[in-house]
Write a protein that binds this DNA or RNA. Structure first.
Lengths: 210, 210
DNA sequence: ATTTTTTGCGACATTGATGTGTCAAACTAG
DNA sequence: CTAGTTTGACACATCAATGTCGCAAAAAAT
């Protein structure tokens, strides 16, 4: 009886989108994440290619570029939430918590790369804008500073920035071939020293303007 | 007698491009740097607007988008070179040298932002690719490690990454309104601790996979 | 004041990315 | 096997960014 239009795999009805359709949809989203992480300005055609589907198929599942971006956004949100959960931020020392979080984030691969992509196509909650994410961090940092694990001279905001930025560095290193283990060790070591208690070894020289 | 074509402000001859033309050209390059630092995908029209010139004027000075980009690249190269020179990397402690370099870089403003822009329109020598720049850094770091100023457990590569990445953080903080002074102090403190000698305060807990 | 240079405006042609639609072939489920 | 679903290959129409031109007005140089 559905003689209306020709073929619409994913009718907007309440019907489940059918397993095949679901599978293709996921495939495309995955390809999009992978592709856009490398090149935020990637074409829909490029994304389709990366997923080994035709551009028309892509358009069949996502009417709009914005539609696809929204789906990616949603997917990233979910995976980030999982990572945060797996990091068990409430348990143990603050520094260890941050360490676990960094490791989990690093494990996200391209999804993390998407967050770092400059004009993040994904959306709003990146860097300074990510309120929810940073509030979670704030709590841990506060705990750390009260427990004298984290340098009281460094502002919480700066600790957060340092966290993200060193995570970025780790991601870059990982992408350029450094072993997962080395990345993990070096990141952990430098981050702990950076935000941990204690004074810098060498004093800064009083500086005249250049 | 020059009745050939109508108007060509910048004849490809050996004649000096005339002061006015030079001035406009500089103006456009400056506007382009400013604009592209904020949005790497900015339109030529947007750039022209930012410089208060018409799009046709922009095209008159730069036939191509690539032409403009090359000019920007050149300009950035020059300013970076000045910054490096001003940092006097050969003098004093390694950490102080790196500190000065960071301060100088930070003073570059939008030019620095351009380097951080993801698909840096500026060109190749960004992050991992910047060989020349990183070799300069390598020398200082080596000096630092031999003088026991820099943590021997942290690989030079990682020190470089940390340097750039924390500079990035500082740039972000500066852009989001943090005072120049605070940025300077916090960056200096955390960077020194991060790559300086000494063990992390709290030991990392042996980690099982999640 | 006059000549020369430089700029702004508007008209085009071109190109690449998008979005829509159609149909036949491939695939899947029953 | 058969009916329904999903996909690939084309064919268009749009749209925005580019790049080119010609001319008149504005600015600079003389």
């Amino acid at each position: 009886m559905v003689t209306a239009t020709y073929n619409r795999p994913m009718p907007r009805t309440n019907t489940d989108p059918s397993p095949t359709a679901r599978r293709t949809r996921r495939l495309i989203v995955e390809a999009a994440i992978e592709t856009l992480a490398g090149n935020p300005a990637a074409t829909l055609a490029e994304i389709a290619d990366a997923g080994d589907v035709s551009r028309s198929t892509l358009h069949r599942h996502f009417t709009d570029r914005g539609d696809l971006l929204a789906a990616i956004d949603e997917e990233c949100r979910i995976r980030f939430a999982h990572a945060v959960e797996a990091a068990r931020l409430g348990e143990g020392d603050a520094l260890n918590s941050l360490d676990r979080l960094a490791q989990e984030y690093l494990g996200l691969g391209s999804v993390l790369g998407l967050v770092f992509a400059d004009n993040a196509p994904v959306d709003p909650d990146v860097w300074e804008d990510s309120e929810e994410r940073d509030q979670t961090l704030s709590a841990v940092i506060q705990r750390g500073q009260q427990g004298h694990e984290i340098d009281p001279e460094v502002s919480p905001t700066w600790v957060i920035t340092t966290f993200w930025v060193m995570l970025f560095g780790a991601w870059l290193a990982q992408k350029s071939g450094m072993s997962r283990r080395d990345v993990s060790v070096q990141l952990s070591r430098t981050f702990r020293k950076a935000v941990g208690p204690g004074d810098p070894a060498a004093r800064r020289e009083p500086e005249g303007r250049g």
